[in-house]
Design a protein around this nucleic acid. Structure first.
Lengths: 301, 301
DNA sequence: CTGAAAGCGCTTACAG
DNA sequence: CTGAAAGCGCTTACAG
């Protein structure tokens, strides 16, 4: 064929025309609350890799907890520029609630309530808190504090619950004033630690909602003359890159961020293509990484 | 009209059909070498924001210095799934070289040679090195070292050139063994610092190619018994988030990463839409941020 | 097995 | 000013 020959030398298919015809764009949307930190980029990388491997492009949208942004991206979604949506907690208000209006496959990542209608890739947050508290208890700590995540975070509430459950089971001091609310940031960790120290009876260890918070808490300890782990053992969650580099290196609960993202993209694309029947939640494993920020309590020795 | 009424209640336009008709997808591709660090995410965020503000979606592609990935994304580009391309240095080999094959508007970010055919958003790297070295010289340092960036990086070579120029102009020791090659990573900074210390005559200050490298260099100093800034002043480039949090807080040259990304997206979209005549390079300002990792040399006092 | 036609859902130029 | 028709570039069902 004349046309085939023409195509052979330098012909490039028009994917837009193809998409219109086959009614699929082979593109997904990742709607992420934030990107300028150490947590989300690894997840996004995992998503991009799975999408790439399966022949999909990935649009990145930042929702920044803005309802207006969520609305605009919802329009893009419903206007069929993408075949599916990966969503994080913060958008729940803006999008999942109006899910009657959501016309395409979706997957939730973290911050999901088990039993939701949208399948999720998540972590057992009770277990996360359990690992941290049991590690501290096994070192001999009995008065353990918790600096929690942001109040609007489902994960934060689950971890508080896991914290209380494990503290009780381990026979530690259940003093409720040992739980202080943070918001996943370095600064909030710093302030929460100061608050804990001002209170009557100092804990010997603190479980922080994430590594940022833990790093802030360590800085606060230092500025208050408390040594880590001598006076205060500190454990974080995530195992971000800084956790291994900081001083002292941070004991933390590693979340497989890359694989969380990769699984989310795969689950979504399976939904889109009607492949696989795995439409239910995927619970990812976590792992305690012991470094130098935790030790037996020195005080009173 | 009956149809208009139908549209009024719940009608969503099909953007794919629209794209096919108007021959524009209102989508751009950001092809980024890497995302799991503190440098690129801020740039990507700036790009997403400008794109969003101008009504464009942004596909995120990770090139990871992989020619195969560059090729696949080049196909997506030429298949008109996107209207334009934002490209970083590392892809130069894979894409810009085959630019005869590149059929859509493009913008380069950093790592660009002035005078390229593709318009760029970049920084005056000679000036970056100049700011750092002049700051150190003004504190009284005369023996200043440089841990450079990766060898394949255009930016790294420019900064080495700027380093030599300024060292000479400031009357500092031009000893060529004071320049050690790094590769923008924490680990390479650590190793390069060790190497510098092993050499005959210790410098009193070191200009590092970025903050990661500087952080690694500081850790190496500490493990070698050198105090910062007492025995060794350290300056970085970028002003990543950790630069303000680390101990001691890092003196650095801030690059406006968010605005670099924002400008890149705007420049690209102006090209796509034929708006504005600003098709030439944009040079972004940088700024010296003085913190506690630099001081007058203590040694020999 | 091969090739022409229909149609995906828009926009836009054109006829009435 | 309004409304019907053409056409963007594919894929797929259908006729030959």
């Amino acid at each position: 064929m004349v046309r085939d020959a023409a195509k052979a030398c330098g012909y490039q298919i028009n994917l837009v025309a193809r998409s219109l015809r086959i009614q699929r764009t082979e593109t997904i949307l990742a709607l992420v609350p934030e990107i300028d930190n150490r947590f989300y980029p690894a997840i996004i990388k995992g998503m991009e890799e799975s999408a790439y491997a399966l022949g999909y492009s990935m649009v990145l949208g930042l929702s920044r907890d803005s309802p207006e942004r969520a609305t605009v991206y919802l329009e893009i979604i419903n206007s069929r520029r993408v075949d599916g949506l990966i969503i994080f907690h913060s958008e729940l208000g803006g999008i999942a609630d109006s899910r009657p209006g959501l016309k395409i496959p979706a997957v939730q990542v973290l911050e999901s309530v088990s039993g939701e209608i949208i399948p999720a890739v998540r972590v057992d947050e009770i277990h996360v808190a359990g690992l941290a508290v049991r590690h501290l208890a096994s070192l001999g700590h009995r008065r353990i504090a918790h600096i929690s995540g942001a109040d609007r975070s489902i994960v934060a509430h689950e971890r508080i619950r896991g914290f209380h459950l494990t503290v009780e089971a381990a026979g530690c001091d259940p003093d409720p004033s040992l739980v202080v609310q943070g918001e996943y940031t370095f600064e909030s960790g710093f302030q929460a630690m100061e608050l804990l120290v001002k209170r009557s009876k100092l804990p010997t260890a603190v479980f922080c909602a994430n590594d940022n918070t833990a790093l802030g808490a360590i800085k606060a300890c230092r500025s208050l003359g408390l040594s880590v782990p001598g006076d205060m053992s500190v454990v974080g969650v995530d195992d971000v890159h800084e956790a291994a580099q900081c001083d002292p290196p941070l004991t933390t609960i590693r979340q497989p961020r890359h694989d969380i993202g990769a699984n989310a993209a795969e689950l979504l694309i399976a939904q889109i293509e009607g492949t696989g029947l795995k439409s239910r939640d995927i619970v990812m494993p976590v792992e305690l990484i012991v470094r130098a920020s935790t030790s037996a309590p020195h005080r009173g020795i």
